[in-house]
């Protein structure tokens, strides 16, 4: 019993963590078959489009793509994979049918920062609404059918309107997983609030004399490995009960109803 609970917990965490790996089809088998199939980006866009009508099966298929394409299904085992697909898929379907609210961007912030606090990660592992918005805009070109898709057709985007801060459950899980990836490997996202502000100023400053950059001025240069070490420490200091609860709490915090 304990084993199965652990497995379930572990599986949920994997999906949250590697959900976006469905993007990846790098192994030999996938490579061999890829020439005859859609690129994963296109496949996800197609499934997201199919799921828009609110059909439960289509919604689960969209979520299942997250699990399946990355080979995560092999890691999870059938039961765990299908339970996640069912939970998120059900929420996605209800959202599409107008029976449930969307997931606000703030839930991503809360979830990421909650994980960072729980695992005692460096300050640059935390995020904020600006960064979540930035990430969604970065994802938009490759995933136009998933990002910023409203329950009904989009109203004309006149000047002054904005990216909808409410996301579908599938988009929310996608964005969460992507943010985790960025926090782990992308210097652009491994910044504290003050560093983000400095970087913003620098990017928008066209004075002729720009300060010359070197490694000492680029604190993010070694943060990939620093994050790795911090996670090791954070994980080892997490109690058994906390670890078992974390996966469910993560989905709950994100606002994915059980």
């Amino acid at each position: 019993m304990k084993k199965s609970i652990l497995f379930l917990s572990l599986g949920l965490m994997i999906v949250l963590g590697v959900g976006l790996l469905w993007l990846s089809k790098g192994n030999t088998t996938q490579a061999e078959s890829a020439s005859n199939s859609l690129h994963p980006f296109d496949a996800i866009n197609q499934k997201a489009k199919n799921a828009r009508a609110g059909n439960r099966a289509d919604a689960e298929e969209l979520v299942g793509e997250v699990i399946h394409i990355s080979d995560t299904e092999n890691v999870l085992g059938g039961f765990t994979a299908s339970s996640i697909k069912e939970r998120v898929g059900r929420n996605e379907s209800r959202y599409r049918l107008g029976q449930a609210q969307g997931i606000p961007e703030g839930k991503i912030v809360r979830t990421i920062n909650g994980l960072a606090k729980k695992l005692n990660l460096p300050d640059y592992a935390r995020t904020n609404s600006y960064e979540v918005r930035k990430l969604r805009l970065s994802l938009l070109p490759n995933f136009p059918q998933l990002i910023n898709q409203k329950t009904q057709g989009s109203q004309p985007s006149t000047v002054g309107t904005k990216l909808d801060p409410q996301m579908s459950p599938a988009e929310a899980v996608f964005v969460l997983a992507m943010m985790i990836q960025q926090k782990m490997v992308n210097d652009e996202y491994q910044l504290t609030n003050s560093e983000r502000l400095s970087k913003w100023k620098e990017a928008h400053n066209h004075h002729p004399k720009k300060p010359k950059k070197d490694d000492s001025q680029n604190p993010a240069s070694n943060r990939n490995s620093e994050m790795r070490r911090a996670l090791e420490i954070g994980a080892n200091s997490t109690s058994i009960s906390d670890a078992l609860q974390l996966s469910n709490i993560t989905l709950n915090t994100l606002g994915i109803e059980q």
Partner: peptide, 23 residues
């Protein structure tokens, strides 16, 4: 061992980054 194993569950949450899970 059990503690280490469960800790791995936490680490795996971050394995999107290819983090080596106690490798």
């Amino acid at each position: 061992k059990k503690i280490t194993g469960i800790s791995l569950a936490v680490l795996l949450a971050w394995s999107a980054a290819g983090f080596s899970c106690g490798g």
